[in-house]
Structures are given as C-alpha cells and as structure tokens.
Design a protein around this nucleic acid. Sequence first.
DNA 1: CTGTTAGCGCCTTCAA
DNA 2: TTGAAGGCGCTAACAG
Lengths: 339, 339
Amino acid sequence: MPTIYDVARRARVSPSTVSRVLNGKQTVDETLAARVREAARELDYRPNALARSLRRSRTNLWAVLVSDINNPFFTALVRGVEDVARSSQYSVVLCNSDEDPDKEASYVAAILAEQMAGVIISPTGGGGPVQRLIDASVPIVAIDRQVPGATVDLVTVDNEHAATVATTHLIDEGFRHIACIAGPRDLSTARQRLDGYRRALRAAGRPIDSRLIQYADFRESGGYAAMAALLDQSPRPDAVFTTNNLMTIGALECLAERGVRVPDDVAVFGFDDVPCATLIQPPLSTVTQPTYEIGRTAAELLLARIAEPTRPPSVKVLPTEIHVRASSRRRVTKATRPA
Amino acid sequence: MPTIYDVARRARVSPSTVSRVLNGKQTVDETLAARVREAARELDYRPNALARSLRRSRTNLWAVLVSDINNPFFTALVRGVEDVARSSQYSVVLCNSDEDPDKEASYVAAILAEQMAGVIISPTGGGGPVQRLIDASVPIVAIDRQVPGATVDLVTVDNEHAATVATTHLIDEGFRHIACIAGPRDLSTARQRLDGYRRALRAAGRPIDSRLIQYADFRESGGYAAMAALLDQSPRPDAVFTTNNLMTIGALECLAERGVRVPDDVAVFGFDDVPCATLIQPPLSTVTQPTYEIGRTAAELLLARIAEPTRPPSVKVLPTEIHVRASSRRRVTKATRPA
DNA sequence: CTGTTAGCGCCTTCAA
DNA sequence: TTGAAGGCGCTAACAG
C-alpha cells in the first residue's frame, strides 16, 4: 500500500502538501494540486484511515448498535441512517447486542477502542454499558428507547398515545377482556405502550385486571408463551394488544396452533409492522412506526451532536400510524344474525 | 483516556512491560505483571485499538458485507459469524450493500481504509469492488454466491439440487405449466436455482417454455412484478417456483391481491425460509438453508484463511431441507370428486 | 527478564 | 503558499 510519502515523492512535493490537497485544505497552488492528484491516482493511493484517525483521534465510522438484528424494525431504520451518513462522509456499521448486556458491553468496548465517531443505539435493559460511551463523550443518539438514567438525544414515537388509540379501538369494538402482552419492564418503550393500554382502559371506566397483562421479552418465543399463558387462565381474553412485532407473530402462532380464531375468539392488535402483514389472514391491525424517518432523524441528530457536543439533548417524537384491519374487528356472530 | 505510559508510570515499569503483560507475551515477572494489571484496572485503561492496529497493520474487526440487510436470510447468518468471532477476539460489524455496486464499493473502501482483518461477503452482481479486496490480500470468504471471476473461499448450499427437487415435486403433483421466478442473471445462486428448475423439467421430458421464466431482482417488488407478468400472459402457469424468500412474498401478495387461490389456481414453492411462514395460509412449501451453520462455517473458513493466507480456497456446500406443505399440493377439485 | 528506541502513516503547528 | 519536524498510542527490535 502506497503512503503519502510515495505520493509526495512522485508529485515532487512535500508530504504536507499532499495531505493538504487530499483534505481540500487551504489554497494550494493549482499546479501542485494537480500533480498530487495525478500521482495519487497513478499509485492508486488510499489514505490509511487508522493513521489518520490516530492522529485526529476520531474515525469516520458510525456504529448502529441495535438490540435485535432479526427484528425488521431495526434493520429498516438502518437505511435512513446510511443515507444521511453517506452524504456526510461517514460509514455505518451495524452491531447486534441481541438484548444481551454482555454483548452490548463488548461492542461498546470495540466502539471505544476503535474511537468511532458516533453511535446510534437502542440500549438493552441493563443500561450499564452505555454509560461508558457517555462518560467517554462519544456522541450518541438513542433510538426507540431511552438510555436508563441518562439524558441523551433520543428519537422515538408517541408510544403511549398509539397504544391508547389501539386499545380504545378494541374497547369500542365491544371486547370485554382485553389483554396486553407487554415488553420488558426496564425498557421505556415497553412501559409507555403498557401505560397507553392502561390509560385507555381507565378512560373507559374499565377495571385493570393484572392477570390480563403478561410481560414478555419482545421476541417471538416470548409472545408465544405469553399468549399461551393468557389462553390457559381465567378470565380468558377475547382480545389482545401485542406490544411489538415479534411478539405479535409469536402470539398469532400460538393462536393458530390451538385453533383459536382471529378475531372471532380473540381479536389482535399489534404494535409495529409485521413482515408479510398483508399475507396473514385476517389482515392484521397494527400501529406502524416511520422506520426510515427514525433512522434519518437519528442520523441528523448525531451530526448535530458531533458538530456541537455541548448542545442540550433533544428528543424527537415522530408520529405513528394506526391501521385498523380485520384482526381487531368484532364480527357479528351467526347466532345473533337475523335468520 | 489514559495511555500505556500512564499505566507504566503508575506501575513503575516501562511501557514495553505494560504492553507485554496486556498482550500475554513471554514470561514477565509475576510481581511486575500484577502491578501492571492493578494499575490498568485503577486507571480503567483501555488500549487504543487504532494505535495498536496502525502498529500491527491489522485490526480485530471483521466486516460482514451483505447484499440485503432486510433479508432475514442474511441477518440470521450473522449470529453464526458472531459466535465464532467472539471466541477468537474479533468484533463483527455488518454492512449493507443493498445489491448496489456503488454502495458495495464504498464499503470496500472503508474496509480497506480501516484495515479490517477479514471480510465475509455476499457480492453484488457487478462484482467489481470485491476484486480490490482480493488484490489487497484481505482475507475474504464469500457466502451464498460466488465472487464473479475470482476463486475465494465460499460457503453455499446445493442450490441446483434443491431447485431440482422442488420443481420435480411440482411436476409429480401433476402441474402442467410450472413457472419460475428467477433471480438476477449475474448471481451464481440465481443461475444455479434456475438450472435446477430446468434440469427437473428436462428429466421429466417436459419442454422448457421461456415465457414461463421471469427474471427479477431477489426483492419483494420484483417477485410481485414477475408474478403479475406471469398471470397476464398465456400460457398462464398453474404452479410457480420462486427462487428466494422476498420474491416469494411478493408473488404471494400479487396472487392474494388478484384473488388467485393457492394452490388451487396456482401452486407455490419457495426458496428460503419466509418470515412468519407458519402464519401464511396455506402453509408454504419451501427449501430452507441452514443459516446459522452458513455463518459459522464462513467464520471458520475466515479464521483458517487468516491463519494461513496461502491455503488453497475451499468451497463448503451445506445441505438444504425441503419442506413440502400445502401450497404446492394438488387438491382434488370438487368437479372431479365423486358426488 | 526489562528498558530504550524507533517508527507504523498521517496531520498540524511552526517557520520560511 | 510550501516544507520540516514532531507526535497521536502502541509494539517490536535491540540492548542490557
């Protein structure tokens, strides 16, 4: 690999001049600049990012550290991040903490060691490792959920509101025993969605039956188990609000396996888009988040934070969309239909 | 951030001794080693990976450069890679080329600039950028598809065989006009699956009707468009073999939208697992790949390649599984049923 | 076994 | 405007 010295020699200038030309600095004489550019091209010179970063003590790499790489919500938002990053000369790498604080800690260590320029993160519940990034003044933007015990830039949605709307819809349809499959207690997002569910019931003068609230882990298996538990107990729900996409899938699998009909026996309203939502019968009612916009907004906040590290943290709340479809609509049963 | 000099001063030894202790080198006197470790702990010292990498001229970062981050096939295999990487002190970052040679080129540039220790890649069709990595002797393992015009370590599956089995199944079920939604012509994987389809027809003495072969882009929208084209022409297929998961989804969406029944009007056999496969009605017949194993095997090949850069490239072909479900079974129609 | 020294490739004062 | 020189933090020769 040719170095800046090789280029300098070939262009008959000093290494500093090469550096200046390659970084678009100051006014270098156009004759020399042209010679430098040609020499660089001829040698297929590519700057050593390691050396440059060591010198400048920061790279041009952003990490997107998500809690579940298999959740399409997180992968979809990466595109929004990439589009902003590319236009600002950053490269984006994706890391997967898998909701595991240990893995998160090991990626945080790597981010620190590699001196990455910024981090967009959906922190795991533990919340420990992220503090290291904050302590080290690494520019950081949280997505989806807050960093426990810290105030950093955040891009999220109106979780509580959306959950209220979804639950209220189920109430208005006339369902009596509306269950909620909630996420981990230590995730702000999960708490807000559960709060929205509770608020809707309260507003309708309905009691909140804690047996109808099942906590799970935001994964498919968790949704499945929670649904199974709900079906095995009394009162058995006639509707369920599932608070993320993977848990919705798990719950639907459980219902299908047991021959429980949707929405006739149990209605379903899910949070987040579900892959192949349109292929599932009946079509699924969902709250959807603007994933691309979330990624884009987070990236823009990160740029702003890098440019001005001391600016006060800001929170962007993006709007959700509610899609009411057949899975949450009460059907007139045959028995009550006029003969 | 404390440096190795700070640790050395505090432990009253030289920086080299600190370096040796921290890297587990040679036999350092245990008294000194203990002092060093304690000093490092007290200062919360974390080595600067940039400096270390600059010095050693290689990092401990692997890149997994996939062609579509929204395809669960690719994200699922990352876990297999991570498990191997972690046990060998490498961190894994995921990059998304989005089947776009330009994006791929820009990530290749970043990988080169950051001197990453190894790359696992599913190359885009263009094939250009990967050559840079090979030229720079970056250890590289291809997954899913070959690198055009180069011989590197490769982990793939028995694409042609699996496609033959799937198509043969459709033939045996008695379908007359079996279509194929094929992938991009410049991807080895797509070619092999199409070859398998052709071979099955040939073996059954069936003509190969080129109107029944639609080329698409391995994406949902491509599958949709291809299916639409097939439905609008004559002969209209009564079965279709879709050669990847996203195109299967697109095709199913098209069929659902037009009220075409599966499998009564058109039977479907898909390649790759489809998210929420079990929720789709009718259950989908698929060829599935061992994603975790593919990731693990690729990572192991990469380790071997790093350890011995000159070893001859090897190709690992992992077995697929065929799941025949209702979407590809011929149903006895009511007309022919005994009354 | 330990310390001194030099340099990985680059950028950035500082002088000219 | 250009060049010379130093140093980012670390490791690997080389002495001792």
